[in-house]
Every structure is written in C-alpha cells, then in structure tokens.
Computed example of a mutant assay.
Amino acid sequence: MIRVQEEDFQVDELYQRLLKANETGAVVMFVGLVRQFSDLPKAICHFELEHYPGMTERNLQTIVDEAKKRWSLLDVCVVHRVGRLSVDDQIVFVGVSAAHRAEAFQACDFVMDYLKSRAAFWKKESQGSNSHWVQANDQDEMSLERWKK
C-alpha cells in the first residue's frame, strides 16, 4: 500500500495491515516526525511539503518494487504526508513485514534511504517570516551507496 495524503495516519491501523496470518515473523516500522529545526518557539516553526500527484506515487512504487526484488517480503506499506506540517507531527510511515527479521529490517532501511533521496517531494521550511526550500543532503546520498553493491 502506498498513500500520499494531507491527513495524519494511525500507526496501529497500518501495523495491522502488515500482518499476514501464519506467515509474519517480523514487522519493522519507521515513523518519521517533524523535528524542531531552529531555536524559535515550536509554534513559529513549520514546513510545507509539496509533491507532484501521480508521479510521486509511481516513484514510491518503484522503490517498493525494488525492495521486493531484493528481499522476500510479505508486504510493504508507505504513507507520506504532504501539506503544512508542524513540529512533532507525523510525516512518514514505512512498514515492512517478512517471515524473518533481517529481511524486514534491511528492506525498511532501504525504503527509507531511497525515499529520503529519490522520492518526488519538495520541502519548504518556515521560521517566523523567513522560509527557504530545503536542498538535497549529502548524508542522504552517502546512505544510498551501501545499497548499490
């Protein structure tokens, strides 16, 4: 399941979707939150996440498909929020179910690394009356290198 949405998500509901009776040996989940990115009060800091509908979902599907090729997975769930988000809001959920924990951990890590650097999202951080578009992060690119082997 892949969803791009403005509304918040319920982690327990997404976890339940990943369970496959008599098959699931492991579920690994990652929930990303909006962190405080300045010294300003939380109420002043937020960001806006934009995407290109259709293209973003296809992009996410490509990442999930690659994970399914690399590991024996039962299911993968990606939910990513867009729109205006504030400090402490949930922004992304990635969940992977598999028969074995090693595959679930690796696949979840892989999906998050590629989502951070290859998914079609654009983020503008706002602090008070100042705002700027966030540029690509060198650390995110370096994280991808380990998956290219």
Results as ranks from 00 to 15, higher is better:
61 Q>D: 09
14 L>V: 01
58 R>F: 04
33 L>R: 13
98 A>T: 12
70 R>S: 00
146 R>I: 06
96 V>I: 14
106 Q>H: 09
55 M>K: 09
33 L>G: 09
33 L>P: 14
24 T>Y: 00
97 S>P: 12
130 N>R: 15
48 E>W: 08
48 E>G: 11
140 D>H: 05
17 R>M: 04
129 S>H: 15
130 N>D: 14
114 Y>I: 09
112 M>I: 12
12 D>I: 09
115 L>M: 12
39 D>N: 09
113 D>W: 04
31 V>H: 08
147 W>P: 05
129 S>N: 15
143 S>C: 13
11 V>M: 08
125 E>P: 12
70 R>K: 02
138 D>T: 15
88 D>G: 13
94 V>D: 11
43 A>T: 14
89 D>N: 09
73 L>C: 01
144 L>I: 05
66 E>N: 06
59 N>W: 05
105 F>G: 03
105 F>A: 01
39 D>Q: 10
74 L>C: 03
40 L>I: 11
18 L>W: 02
39 D>A: 04
49 L>K: 02
52 Y>W: 05
134 V>W: 08
146 R>M: 04
11 V>H: 08
80 H>F: 00
61 Q>V: 03
106 Q>G: 07
72 S>Y: 05
87 V>L: 02
144 L>P: 12
87 V>G: 04
134 V>K: 11
63 I>L: 00
62 T>C: 07
59 N>V: 05
14 L>A: 00
147 W>T: 03
94 V>S: 08
118 R>P: 13
19 L>Y: 11
4 V>Y: 02
88 D>L: 12
4 V>H: 04
117 S>C: 14
124 K>N: 12
15 Y>E: 14
121 F>R: 15
14 L>T: 04
104 A>P: 07
71 W>A: 00
3 R>P: 08
57 E>V: 05
55 M>V: 09
103 E>F: 01
149 K>A: 04
88 D>T: 14
31 V>D: 10
125 E>Y: 06
65 D>N: 07
42 K>F: 03
80 H>L: 00
57 E>F: 01
121 F>H: 13
141 E>Y: 13
58 R>G: 10
67 A>D: 08
60 L>A: 01
19 L>S: 09
146 R>D: 07
101 R>Y: 01
8 D>S: 12
84 R>M: 02
130 N>E: 15
125 E>W: 06
124 K>R: 14
60 L>W: 03
81 R>M: 00
43 A>G: 15
111 V>N: 13
121 F>W: 12
15 Y>T: 14
67 A>V: 05
148 K>F: 04
33 L>I: 13
